[in-house]
Design a protein around this nucleic acid. Sequence first.
RNA 1: GGGCGAUUGGCUCAGUGGUAGAGCACUUCCUUCACACGGAAGGGGUCACAAGUUCGAAUCUUGUAUCGCCCACCA
Length: 932
Amino acid sequence: MTTPTLDLPNAFQPETVEAEMYRFWESHALFRPESQPAVPAEKQTQAGSNRFSLVIPPPNVTGTLHMGHALDYTIQDILTRWHRMRGDKTLWMPGCDHAGIATQSVVERALWDGRLEGQPAKTSRHDLGKEAFLNLVWQWADARKVDIINQFKRLGISPDWDRLRFTLDDGLSQAVREAFVTLYERGLIYQGQRIVNWCPQLRSAISDVETIYQEEDSFLWHIAYPLTEAVEGFPSALTVATTRPETMFGDVAVAVHPEDGRYQALIGKTVRLPLTDRFIPIIADESVEMDFGTGCLKITPAHDANDFEVGQRHGLQPVWCLDEDARLVKDDAVVPRSLQGVNRFEARQQVEALLEEAGLLVEKKPHTHRVGHCQRTGDVIEPFLSTQWFVNTQPLAQEALAALERGEIRFIPERWTKEYLRWMTHIQDWCISRQLWWGHAIPAWTCADCGHGPIVSRENPHTCPVCGSTHLQQDPDVLDTWFSSGLWPFSTMGWPNTQAPDYQTFYEHAHESADSPQSTYGTDVLVTGFDIIFFWVARMTMFGHAFTGRSPFHTVFIHGLIRDEKGQKMSKSKGNVMDPVQSIEKYGCDGFRFALTSLIAYGGQDIKISDDKLEQGKLFANKLWNASRFVLMNLYQADPSALKKLSPEAIIPETLSLMDRWILSRYHQTVAEANRLLEGFRFGELAQTLMDFTWNDFCDWYVEYAKKQLREPEMAFNTRCVLLTVLDGLLRLLHPIMPYITEALWQKLPNRSELSISISTYPVANPSYVQPELSQQVEFAIQTIRAIRNIRQEYTVAHATPVPVVVECPDSNEQAALREAEAIIQHFVRLSSLQVVAHLEVPIAQAGINVVGQSRVFIPLEGLIDVTAERQRLEKKQLELKKEQQKLYQMMDNHEFLQQAPAAIVEKNKARLTEVNHQLKGLEAQLESLSA
RNA sequence: GGGCGAUUGGCUCAGUGGUAGAGCACUUCCUUCACACGGAAGGGGUCACAAGUUCGAAUCUUGUAUCGCCCACCA
């Protein structure tokens, strides 16, 4: 540590500290759990467990940083930094998602528009071929990943970047394969012909949750299907009502309700399909609503989910009249020649015209109904009969639901539990195959010679087990991108290798609290928006139980969506998108983060963000800066020898003024309050509480009063100590929300009694391990130094560089400490033959956050309380309790109640009575002490 | 058709049984040595409506109204 200097400008300039502090943290490898020093027992919190882990919701590689990310990651960073400061071994796992559909379409478009280097415009992926195209996508994705991470770093967040994962990494791909094969072996993955949501633009199936339904105005066409024989008492044609006349060529029957009196005599007869010379039967099926339309339903099994089921019940072969591009098929047996190849929207008009011409269009009525759209492309979804891979989700959902019932997972706010429960209870099978190129290949093969298949295997098969042929063809499809996301909490930790260090340390034993020695969950918290509960959270819980036998996290914190100041969703088309990077540049990262945090309401309401709010965050950062500047300036006015003596422990309790006692008392209250709010995920209130204390109590009252006290020679010392104490704690309290400014200011505080040296060895060994030789060298060096120098504190070398070492610093003498540090570094260099970069500052994060009870000063409250008001308050409380006491006594005397009420209720009342009596005694004592 | 959420000062919103809160805006005053990106003082709300529970309700219960969101195979 160098002597702090006070070149503080009179307004906070975020840009001067942000980049520097981020480098400082990274050079200390502060985000790596391995470099975290063990926190001394007396600094550990009672509530704190010794592990904390969470995984980042991986952003799409296609994405750019938006406000939603900023909010989501700020919350996670607050939690991460808070736990780290409490001494928990903390891992925040970062990563990116390959985002199958999104990425492929973006690159495809860029390729077509000629925006990819070395590629001419108007090139399609088919022109390039699969391999060349995928190479392009990889190049593009790798470049994007770097961009995204650099953007995220602007948020000041602290995940362990060395562990960065990608859903298409080898390890994660292996996890995907293991998961797929395991589910297949358990009979929970199957291939089948089903109606899927088909996006013609993508030429791929998508899942139910990727289909967005919107109400649209359309028509109900009433079409006459002529009967092939005259039936007495009936007109010569049956009128069906449909919203999709263009699919009529796929009709295989007309259905009526079996109990519909109007059509009884017609069941089993035949009608001619208009515009064709095909004949289809009239069948009876209970799924037909008699009241809707004409009560006659055309059955199109290949293009409607309900019709498909009807067709199955009646053994009807489906007829496809639309192809993969949603154009009428070129098949004379199905579609009249003039309509072949016409797309579905034009076909609708042409069919209508033809029907009208033929006199078969009975009526065209306006009608609103829900139309599915592709979440990604916006194209109208075509229900389409096709062979795809599915996950049988019900058994998986049941396990997850059982865990929910056992209380192994909770949602905050709680109301989302119901949403999750409802969805999981009515869950449909999940279509996981996509007709794309970019993604995880499906590990299923078919024999090209004998047609045997599918062969599903962990290892690539070479011969057909039936005919011995070596001509095996892998399924051309890839998996839904959410399949790999669903494994994220444990695939990132090394699963399926359950012996992987991260899996052991941060997944399987994530929470070793006293009350749950047998942990039943993996990581601790998941933070996300409600919009992906079904896409992601539900899949993670199902997969978590299926593969690891535990909930992937015990708490799901759901936050609201970010909206603009008018409450509208931010979207490019509306032009109301706010760029977080721009906001950070304008208001400073700390101000920005503080503003965001202060807007998070506990109920998970949507968040309306505006420049006005961000401006407030900036003002607060500036206020904090200036308050600190005042304190520091006054501390450094003390002569150098006195400066060294300033510390919380040096406070002389006997001579504290009332104002000193008051601010210390308020400070301790605030610390307790802040920890309580953090435990309860009450971020908005946390920000409010801290701002209130900083601004109203500390700045407006104490600092103003301190000016006077500093002029009194006998009060100056205590005042300086109190200023230092409160500022020190305040900075630590605010650090999780405002990391940069607090770190920068904290570094300027005088008199850190111990000095931490973080020794980074370069080149840093890649990701999560150290080369054995390197590790041995470090170990050797440390051991040796340890033998001759006074090094305190645990250090870890097994899994990481750098190595944190703490040096005892005699007499708080900085110069001595500095010399000691230099000596150690020199030893280290000599002994390990490694290049060493040493940093001599201690990061605020390692200072701990729980400062309650640290002060030796007892802060009595007398003299500051308005005695009369307090007495009134206590008396009121006493009255209330006495009333309750009376009620309870009456209950206890009531024989009917005692006999008839459930035992639990009686017990509860008894317990309450004991507590009330206890409280009353306490109140009496308080009242007495007030009188005295 | 079901379910969920919201309704608090001019604006944006906190607050879940104990005397209505914050920021912005507004009024008046103050450039005094941390900060004018500041300070001091002040005005402004029968907490959507109705009924109920309670000694006491913004807060709990029921109903109503308005707005928003989610889910559902009436073609």
